[in-house]
């Protein structure tokens, strides 16, 4: 049986491990720094640890990393990496270079339970949670890691349905014993699972993005089943209770669907819903998926919609579509074809 990996452990977890091995507490920080700052993959390389401790660690743990099993490159330079997860499942990660910036779109689950009508990941159902190590590994093993300027949790899965591991990932990414990233370079996106979102806001400094897609309850229910239990109005009500400060960004994601959520009535609805909030709105082109009754709004309409929101005082951007030809664009990540599913219960 394979030894458990230390990769993906927080400092507190490593402290517990070293205590169980009878080693001094300060060695935990040394180990964390070897793994996350110096990127070593062999315990023997931890040269400031006693040889006996290195031996103990090697007997009971591992820090080996797997590599991506497949890479696809888009005509626009976007790359999609395929990583193995547990149980013969796979996840996808999108690397998106753009001028001097480069963003990595990481996954938090294999598949997704949320069933949004417009999302390809949702069509494969849910196969499992990613461990903290599997989340961090998407960054650690990226060949272009040194070029990254931003990390967004917008890949496969709903991050707040795997809150514990996402929170630990953010901790490892931002801690001084970890990767030392500024939390301002990390955005976690959610459809609005309220209790988890509350925990995240209160215990993290990373940016938050909320998938809105329509300001109206009855409409949102049609495309996002989560609206039944965590309605967008309640999500916004909760967000209004917090002062996120000037350093922390709150954004709302809005995929533009033709004749569904692209009218002037929707501009009014968004304006009422977000009135007085300091936030950004990101308009996203819809990338059609098979068997979808939805279509993308026209470029002209998206521009008009943006201007309408700007005139209401909202900072509004239109997200560039990247990696569409390799199915790496927003809403297109899926490993359904690679999933070996058990017999379903229906």
């Amino acid at each position: 049986m394979k030894n458990p990996s230390l990769f993906g452990k927080t400092l507190a977890e490593i402290e517990e491990i070293v205590a169980s091995l009878g080693a001094p507490a300060f060695t935990a920080r040394q180990i964390a720094e070897w793994i996350y700052k110096k990127h070593i993959t062999q315990f023997d390389a931890m040269t400031n640890l006693p040889k006996s401790l290195r031996h103990q660690l090697a007997q009971g743990y591992s820090i080996e990393l797997s590599t991506a099993v497949k890479v696809q490159t888009s005509v626009d330079g976007t790359k999609k990496y395929l990583y193995p997860s547990t149980g013969h499942t796979f996840i996808e990660t999108a690397y998106i270079p753009e001028g001097k910036r480069a963003t990595l779109c990481v996954s938090s689950q294999v598949g997704c339970k949320m069933g949004c009508l417009f999302c390809m990941t949702g069509k494969q159902g849910f196969q499992g949670q990613l461990s903290t190590g599997e989340i961090i590994h998407q960054i650690r093993s990226l060949p272009e890691r040194e070029t990254l300027s931003n990390i967004v949790f917008m890949g496969m899965g709903e991050p707040f349905d795997n809150l514990e591991n996402v929170m630990k990932s953010c901790e490892i990414l931002t801690a001084d014993w970890g990767y030392g990233w500024s939390p301002k370079r990390i955005t976690v996106s959610t459809i609005g699972i309220i209790p988890a979102m509350k925990t995240f806001i209160e215990n993290s400094s990373c940016h938050l993005a909320v998938s809105m897609h329509t300001p109206f309850h009855a409409e949102r229910k049609k495309i996002m089943p989560i609206e039944n239990v965590y309605p967008i109005q309640a999500v916004v009500d909760l967000l209004r209770r917090y002062d996120l400060g000037k350093q922390r960004r709150l954004s709302f994601e809005y995929i533009m669907f033709k004749d569904f959520n692209d009218s002037n009535r929707h501009i009014q609805g968004i304006s009422r819903l977000l009135h007085g909030m300091r936030c950004r709105i990101n308009l996203i082109r819809f990338h059609p998926i098979p068997n979808s009754p939805l279509a993308s709004a026209s470029e002209e309409r998206i521009q008009q919609f943006r201007e309408g929101l700007v005139s209401k005082g909202f900072r509004t951007t239109i997200r560039a579509s990247r990696g569409e030809d390799i199915l790496a664009a927003c809403g297109l990540l899926s490993t359904k074809e690679l999933v070996k599913t058990q017999a379903p219960d229906f």
Partner: peptide, 23 residues
Amino acid sequence: GSAEMVVEVRDILIEKEIPIDKI
């Protein structure tokens, strides 16, 4: 039910031209 079931049945209904207003 589960995401798998809901997504599959929803796709079938859409294929059979049931409006999304009715799902």
